[in-house]
């Protein structure tokens, strides 16, 4: 489904990586590894189409990405909080879905927040939540946005032990239903299997 070949990226004069290639089929996931500054985040941003590659190509369902179809099938969660501090978790989830053109009813949004352990926090402004809780609000989008490919950049940061385990379970569930994931992390991930890519 996802085919990447000959990808190269440089920042200024410095070549970060070149000739990076991998392929993912339904149910597979990729662990992108590398030292700080080796270009993991650059690779992720390049993959989702936020920045252009120096060389190489990305194909999704045999079509060049990023296409509208690719954007519909993919969800990217990066370093940013990507939630509005002045809104409640519930409003954040529902508005994010509305911007994506998806109708999300309150029950489904609430169920996602409860699954992420935010019961009783859904009506508080995100501003008053802790860093880990903010991260959980963002991760709740994985449940409310139907996507095949999850691109998660350092998604395990700021999470406590229980949340790391929960996210591991969510990814494993996603993979078992034919999903795919590309993850970066410095720690060993609680997800079985997976290909590794070292930058």
């Amino acid at each position: 489904m996802l085919n990447v070949s000959g990808l190269a990226c440089s920042r200024g004069e410095r070549r970060l990586f070149s000739d990076v290639g991998f392929a993912l089929a339904a149910g597979e996931w990729l662990h992108v590894q590398g030292e700080n500054g080796s270009g993991k985040t650059s690779l992720m941003r390049l993959l989702v189409g936020l920045s252009p590659a120096d060389a190489g190509q990305i194909r999704w369902r045999n079509e060049p990405a990023p296409s509208v179809e690719f954007r519909r099938d993919m969800i990217y969660l990066g370093h940013h909080a990507a939630v509005k501090e002045d809104l409640t978790p519930l409003e954040n989830l529902r508005l994010a879905a509305a911007l994506d053109g998806i109708e999300l009813d309150e029950g489904a949004a609430l169920a996602a927040l409860i699954r992420l352990g935010l019961r009783g926090r859904e009506e508080l402004p995100v501003r008053v939540l802790s860093a880990g809780q903010k991260r959980r609000v963002l991760l709740a989008r994985l449940l409310t946005r139907p996507a095949i490919l999850w691109v998660l950049d350092e998604a395990f940061n700021a999470l406590d032990v229980a949340a790391v385990k929960l996210l591991g379970e969510l990814i494993a569930e996603h993979l078992s239903t034919g999903g795919m994931a590309v993850l970066t992390s410095h720690q060993p991930l609680p997800v079985p299997g997976g290909k590794a890519l070292v930058l």
Binding site: R72, E85, L99
Partner: peptide, 18 residues
Amino acid sequence: SDGTLEQMALSPSPLGLL
């Protein structure tokens, strides 16, 4: 700065509309 613009750019909805 909070990354929601990035999410808009990656949304299936056309960015121009947003």
